[in-house]
């Protein structure tokens, strides 16, 4: 195949002709816009781009992209995308999922896609609620959450998606939110560049069933005090003028400190490439929920063997060893006798 330059595209080229049907004011609109505006910058082709989703509000995403796409069944998108990605390494395969889809019904597929390090870019729209089924609590809803299915409050402790991903050996883990297009685009770009399984958690507002779930940290006036931007190689600081920071206590846990008090040298320097996910995990546990200062950005970006490439290599190795498969030889491989 001749290497033809990727044609220039605009946001419009990546939008399908289908009417977008999310509720007015849904956070999903800004995520869709961020993606449609980013893709022209990534130097990729529409025909080589596939969005695979499960079920839920977020899962309608592929219908709105003028790429290849599959809106599959509840929770199974990572499994379906795995089959596609390992047989078609030439494609960019994105998985679009929500907190219920990825962490409840599809939890098993999500963790194993990350463990295997399949070359997938997984976007987890976390709105801490079931939207499409009209407002039941989700596996990321806070304990005590009152919903239609928990009129006396949810008894369940929530999952922290970043912690889950790190525990499942994901080689790239990031968090962003639907109020900051530039940050979303930067996280999507980084996740797309990563070879292997990349998970981006997106805090997303459901203005109908869980409005304001993230307002304590994402309100315009709250962000500087409540979001902790993670930047590789930099001391972790946040707050007005970077007055606050993250440091390791003498007991071995991470804590928030006043930089003036603790001293700059005490601050933890963020290293997303650390092989050991322990510190990234500790960072993911800094906030108990989106009501305390919360890290956003890339938690982890390490190089691990990519599953599909390994699979392809085993085929090449076998062909090198045995030559390409010959059917007649195979059928005779169990020992034969001849009747004449």
């Amino acid at each position: 195949m001749t290497d033809v330059a990727v044609p220039n595209t605009t946001r419009k080229d990546w939008a399908s002709d289908q009417e977008v049907r999310w509720c007015p004011g849904c956070g999903d609109y800004s995520i869709l816009a961020a993606m449609q505006m980013l893709l022209p910058e990534l130097g990729v082709r529409r025909e080589n781009t596939v969005f695979v989703s499960g079920i839920g509000c977020a899962a309608r995403f592929p219908y709105y992209m003028s790429t290849y796409g599959m809106h599959s069944i509840h929770g199974r998108a990572p499994a379906i995308a795995t089959g596609l990605a390992v047989t078609r390494p030439d494609l960019d395969v994105w998985v679009v999922s929500g907190d219920g889809d990825a962490l409840s019904i599809g939890g098993n597929h999500l963790i194993h896609a990350m463990r295997r390090n399949v070359n997938l870019t997984i976007l987890l729209f976390n709105n801490q609620i079931y939207g499409l089924t009209k407002g039941q609590y989700s596996p990321t809803s806070e304990q005590g959450k009152v919903t239609k299915s928990t009129p006396f409050g949810s008894l369940e402790a929530p999952f922290n998606p970043v912690s889950v991903a790190l525990g499942a050996e994901a080689s790239f883990v990031a968090r962003t939110h639907d109020m900051d297009r530039k940050h979303m685009q930067e996280m999507f770009r980084r996740a797309h560049e990563h070879r292997g399984a990349a998970l981006v958690e997106i805090y997303q507002n459901c203005n109908v069933f869980n409005d304001g779930a993230f307002s304590q940290i994402l309100g315009r006036d709250q962000r500087s005090e409540m979001l902790i931007p993670l930047e590789h190689g930099q001391p972790i600081r946040f707050g007005a003028d970077g007055g606050r920071g993250v440091a390791m206590s003498s007991e071995g846990h991470l804590q928030l400190v006043d930089v003036a008090e603790a001293g700059e040298a005490a601050l933890l320097v963020h290293d997303e490439t650390r092989e050991d996910p322990g510190l990234a995990f500790a960072l993911s546990r800094l906030a108990r929920g989106p009501f305390e200062p919360t890290p956003i950005g890339v938690f982890r970006d390490v190089v691990r063997p990519e599953y599909g490439a390994g699979m392809a290599q085993q085929i090449l190795d076998a062909q090198e060893r045995k030559g390409p498969g010959d059917l007649a030889t195979l059928l005779a491989s169990g020992g034969t006798w001849t009747v004449s």
């Binding site: 599959s72 499994a79 379906i80 089959g83 596609l84 047989t87 597929h109």
Partner: peptide, 9 residues
Amino acid sequence: GSAIGAAFG
């Protein structure tokens, strides 16, 4: 699921 994904490809 993976077989369906492979078939799509």
